[in-house]
């Protein structure tokens, strides 16, 4: 599963440019599920189970990752960028990036720290003062390699480290995509819909349409959520912790989750004897925000992987949480069908 997560994370796909991710996913769906791609680029897959429950259950994860987009090319050849999705500018400055489909290597930089005033040194570099340098000296030179609107992705290494941890860009939400692919390759008890959706990071847009099309009775969103279990956060602000198992939310900034499904998730984890936790803050949001208010409304749950340093070049998760999230999701889907 880790091997496929690495493959998925290394593909570049900011919101609106999910094509390469979709291409890989479709290659894996071939022969394992029926699928179609809708007008926005969502993949809507149907996996036949051993039986039909009479309930339509939709499991969803988003394909897009946060990144940047080229908005302007300066006369000196450097590129101006804007964030796509919520990114703290402090995790962008000084990084290696890949620009466009040809993955042109560049670095994000600005004035050397030595040449800053005392005041400037205390401030982070905002996006409008950053430029990407690809080694050119003129706009003409840059235009041969880069176009306005090209995506800019973190060039970060996928690495296992410490005691069973994994670091990479784009774990949010390729981890969710990876779990769904694993489920689709296995035999399932019940007929189930799986949607790989676009444009979550810029406002839950893909899920809005995918949920309309599928028109499910129940939905389960697979996500990665902020684990703030770092020394700077007080106990109640940790939200969730690594190695604490999958995270089931009761409420976030976009959704108040279905109470029965919430309890059912915990009950399922208990029976499986795997750890499970909830979010201790009402923070963040995910595609459930769009899905649960689709048509007349959909009973929705979200199961998330606890993830440190979300929306940065190095999201960090624990391998055991990934495995436990998969286990919970697999069994939880059956429980929903059996209700």
């Amino acid at each position: 599963m880790l091997e496929e997560l690495k493959t998925l994370c290394e593909i570049n796909g900011i919101s609106g440019e999910e094509g390469a991710v979709a291409e890989y996913i479709c290659s894996q769906l071939e022969g394992n599920a029926e699928y179609k791609i809708d007008n926005l680029g969502n993949i809507i897959a149907f996996k036949k189970g051993r039986q039909a429950s009479g309930k339509k259950v939709m499991v969803s994860a988003h394909m897009d990752e946060v990144g940047m987009i080229v908005t302007y090319i300066n006369p000196d050849g450097t590129l101006k960028i804007s964030p796509v999705g919520g990114i703290d500018p402090r995790v962008v400055f000084g990084r290696k990036v890949e620009v466009g489909k040809n993955r042109i290597c560049g670095v994000v930089g600005g004035k050397a720290v030595h040449n800053l005033s005392a005041d400037e040194r205390k401030k982070s570099v905002p996006f409008d003062s950053m430029t990407v340098d690809i080694g050119t000296d003129s706009r003409e030179e840059s235009l041969k390699l880069v176009s306005l609107g090209d995506s800019v992705c973190f060039d970060s290494r996928f690495a296992r480290f410490g005691d069973g941890l994994v670091a990479s860009k784009a774990i949010d939400d390729r981890a969710g995509c990876g779990i769904m692919l694993r489920l689709i390759r296995e035999e399932l008890e019940y007929d189930t819909y799986f949607t790989f959706v676009v444009q979550e990071e810029i406002g839950l847009r893909g899920a809005t349409c995918a949920a309309y099309t599928v028109n499910p009775d129940y939905a389960l969103v697979l996500e990665s959520t902020t684990a703030a279990d770092v020394p700077t956060a007080s106990e109640e602000k940790k939200v969730c912790v690594l190695k604490g198992g999958p995270v089931v939310s009761f409420m976030d900034r976009h959704t108040i989750y279905d109470k029965e499904l919430y309890s059912l998730a915990f009950k399922t984890a208990e029976e499986l004897k795997i750890p499970c936790q909830t979010k201790t803050m009402v923070a963040g949001g995910n595609d459930a925000g769009a899905i649960h208010i689709t048509r007349q409304g959909v009973k929705t749950a979200a199961i998330s992987l606890p993830c440190r340093y979300l929306h940065s070049p190095y999201c960090v998760i624990a391998e055991e949480d990934l495995e436990n999230t998969y286990l919970l999701v697999k069994n939880f889907i059956d429980r929903i069908h059996k209700r």
């Binding site: 700077t232 956060a233 602000k237 923070a283 963040g284 340093y309 940065s312």
Partner: peptide, 9 residues
């Protein structure tokens, strides 16, 4: 990995 303060905090 250098810990970064999560955006919500």
């Amino acid at each position: 990995i250098v810990a970064s303060t999560p955006p919500h905090l």
